[in-house]
């Protein structure tokens, strides 16, 4: 998954969940979106936890 900011990931997740919630969309057409939403949830949680190594990397990069 492409590295995006937490803010961007959260925004995308919110949009996708909103689309999945749309009653007009049926189960079979949501497959890709569900997969993407699950990835985003995992990604956001990773950013929330953020291990020390990653934080140091962020600092070195900035």
């Amino acid at each position: 998954m492409k590295k995006i900011s937490y803010e961007e990931a959260l925004k995308q997740l919110d949009e996708i969940v909103g689309q999945i919630e749309d009653p007009k969309r049926n189960l079979t057409t949501t497959g890709e979106d569900v997969k993407k939403a699950m990835e985003l949830i995992k990604y956001c949680k990773e950013l929330l936890r953020g291990d020390q190594e990653k934080i140091e990397k962020i600092i070195n990069e900035s």
């Binding site: 919110d14 969940v17 999945i20």
Partner: peptide, 8 residues
């Protein structure tokens, strides 16, 4: 995030 996961 949990709330979005629950919504999903």
């Amino acid at each position: 995030i949990s709330s979005l996961a629950s919504r999903l």
